[in-house]
Design a protein around this nucleic acid. Structure first.
Lengths: 350, 350
DNA sequence: AGTTGGCACTCACATTCCGAGAGTGCTAAT
DNA sequence: ATTAGCACTCTCGGAATGTGAGTGCCAACT
């Protein structure tokens, strides 16, 4: 067979080439690769193999007389089958844990996680806010504003406060609002917001007969309060400026469209949402993400959870040429630490 | 006198030169200036004047055979004494007003103002969050969390909800917390947070005798809730990416340090705080701001107010070479519109 | 058949070298 | 005081050139 094929040796060379390129940033030529890899082969042989790899679309050369650099498929094969990740040392983990645990405010915890990611990776770190739906309701409160506007305040998961202004059909007295809140608290407290919403809808459809006016009002307000809001989704980004240092992104237009994507938020959120389904570490390389602004970036993500429910995603954004073997464990451990920090503390015997 | 002096003519030429440079971005030579200005002077004469202006440090040439560009002092003189701002057309104002008025959520209003600034100017817009101190308290509420942690929720100015977790000295029952909140609401509602804090401190010092335990507890909690937090200050930034288009900022390191300043926030906040004292439009040109990252930027700001109290600052950030005569009225009007949008609506006869 | 040395060839990149153009400062004339 | 004239300086763009890295292919070797 003169057809290109992926034998053990070519894979080994591909691996060596990509590792070299990741650490150097320079196209890798046959000569350096010959010295770099353990294989005892001459540059000429390596050239043959490299030609095969190029035919298979795993590497390419930017111009005739330069070495080769990995393509997206090359990176993909690399991270899927060739990569050897180094697990972190326990000592290191303990150190990181210290930075995340025991922060009172939730927003600050997320920010700390994001900053942690960016500092570890020297690239950009991102953490989505927890999906509202997945949080469980702890307490709800209504506060009358002017006219028939009512401020709804609800607390979830011990710490987080959300608020929203709703327009009610008629004017309610403070006492009425208080009663409505009491009712809702007694019935729905402890359930997830998604569950509450479903239950509320069902109540409204099913049996209006046996409900008194108070309950009906309360339910109606709850419906308004918990109707889904697309706009509210958000993420915390840190270390964006680190990305300006990388030559592959320092092109004016690329950098600009990347930062524009960051401030539009919407596209990034959509991309991150996709990562919530899969568990474990997930990777998008270059164009794989489908967002033009991310064409020259890779995204390494992992989801995090509260009470065993996946509620959000965090990750690292950097140039496709990144040290995946380090970034992957970083993202992995940060996701676990963040989950631990957000979870209701286990009962601690004093 | 052969000494350089600032007569009417040289000022007129300086003005023409700066206007030309702002619109073109190219160093301005004697020839173009001769044609540009209304003065009937030969290039040679202009050259003499320009040499004088250079001696006075108002302009300088980047190299021997280029035209002149304004220095910081040149710009300063320009904006202080030479600038002719065009007031906006009423029609234009009405259009802008539409975008800002009638947004329910306060956070969104600030964001809208920031975006408005960046869109009008095609540069970056910034709006500080209102100073907490200046807001008046509308309602306060305590919610027990685990152990002796208490979630304090307080509403200010009709719409804004703040919250904070405090650690109390002992465990309080929900009923006790309710009573404390009732007490505080009855006594302090309607006053500014700063006033509340002062009053609370005074209460604690003055006459412990005639207070019952309940009031004392309430006061203590209020003290914890309202103690000043430096960290909470923040601003809303939009259109940062517009800045990447300007050649004078496209230098990698400059751009990076600028964006780093944006994400550090602290320095920017400090700078903006200084603008709160002066009223009317205020301008920092280049190094005047004292922050290295802003060396090549100008900042045009104005303060905005709620209930006739200055509570925050907004402005535009761009390269020193900006169309001040347009930006100044933009910033001015946006500040006024934002103040109007935030103020308690005047009673509207339906 | 796979591997290797040799060799001609191709490019990107840095360096150098003009030439053109813009703009200045100075001086002498008005 | 203003201006025309002139020599001079300096940047910028393009062309020419050399260098070095790296390739592809072929023929020879194992």
């Amino acid at each position: 067979m003169s057809h290109p094929q992926l034998n053990e040796r070519s894979l080994q060379l591909l691996k060596a080439l990509i590792e070299r390129y990741i650490s150097d940033g320079q196209p890798v030529g046959s000569r350096v690769l010959a010295k770099d890899s353990d294989l005892k082969l001459s540059p000429a042989t390596i050239r043959n193999v490299m030609a095969d790899l190029e035919d298979m679309g795993l590497i390419h050369s930017p111009h005739t007389s330069a070495g080769r650099i990995p393509t997206v498929s090359g990176y993909r094969l690399f991270v899927d089958s060739l990569l050897t990740v180094k697990p972190l040392e326990l000592q290191e983990i303990a150190r990181l844990q210290g930075g995340l645990a025991r922060i009172e405010d939730r927003g600050q915890t997320l920010e700390a996680a994001s900053r942690l990611l960016s500092e570890l990776s020297q690239m950009a770190g991102v953490v989505t806010l927890p999906k509202r739906e997945m949080l469980y309701l702890r307490h709800i409160e209504f506060l009358p504003l002017s006219h028939s506007r009512v401020l709804v305040i609800f607390v979830t998961n011990e710490q987080e406060v959300h608020n929203k202004i709703i327009l009610t059909s008629r004017l309610f007295s403070p006492a009425e609002l208080q009663q409505a809140a009491n009712y809702l608290n007694s019935v729905y407290s402890g359930r997830s917001l998604a569950a509450v919403r479903d239950a509320v809808l069902k109540e409204l459809q099913d049996d209006r007969e046996q409900m008194n006016q108070l309950m009906l009002d309360a339910i109606r307000m709850a419906q308004l309060a918990f109707e889904p809001e697309e706009k509210k989704e958000d993420f915390v980004l840190s270390g964006e400026t680190n990305l300006m240092g990388f030559s592959e992104l320092s092109d004016r237009d690329r950098l600009r469209s990347l930062f524009e994507a960051f401030s539009q938020k919407q596209g990034v959120i959509h991309l991150l949402d996709q990562c919530m389904k899969a568990d474990g570490v997930q990777i998008f390389i270059g164009e794989e993400s489908g967002y033009e602004a991310f064409d020259h970036c890779s995204l390494v993500t992992s989801s995090y959870s509260v009470s065993d429910e996946v509620v959000g995603v965090l990750g690292v954004i950097g140039p496709t040429r990144m040290a995946y073997e380090k970034i992957i464990p970083y993202v992995d451990i940060t996701a676990k630490l963040l989950s631990a920090a957000l979870n209701p503390k286990s009962a601690s015997p004093s």
